[in-house]
Amino acid sequence: MKDNKQIETVLDSFNNMSRAELSPFVKSRILHSIFEQEKDIEMELPLKRVFWILSFATLFLFVNTIILHNKKYNNKTESNQTSYKDNSNEYYFNTTSLFYNDDKQ
C-alpha cells in the first residue's frame, strides 16, 4: 500500500514542473545561426547555377573532344591504309622495274 502511494508520487513528479529557460547567449546564438544560414542559402543559389553551367560546359567539351578525336583517328587510319596500298604499288612497280632492268641487262 505504501509502495503504491510512493509509485504514484514518483509518477506525478512531473506535475507543476516549470519550464527551463534558455540563456540569452544561447538565444542569440540560435538567431545568429539562422541568419547565417539565410546568407548561405542566398549564396547557394547562384553558386549552384554556376556549378551546373560549369559542369554542363565541361561535359560538352569532353564529349566534343572525344568525337573530334575519334574522327581524326578514323581519318588517320584510312590515310594509313591508302599509303600502305600506295607503297605496295610502288614496291610492285619497283620490282617490275627491277625485273625490267634485269631483263634488259
Partner: peptide
Amino acid sequence: NHPGIELQNKENATLLYTA
C-alpha cells in the same frame, strides 16, 4: 535533474527519468 522540477520532487523525478 531537470532545472524546472520542484526541489521536493527532484529525487522522484530522477527515478522517473530512469524508468
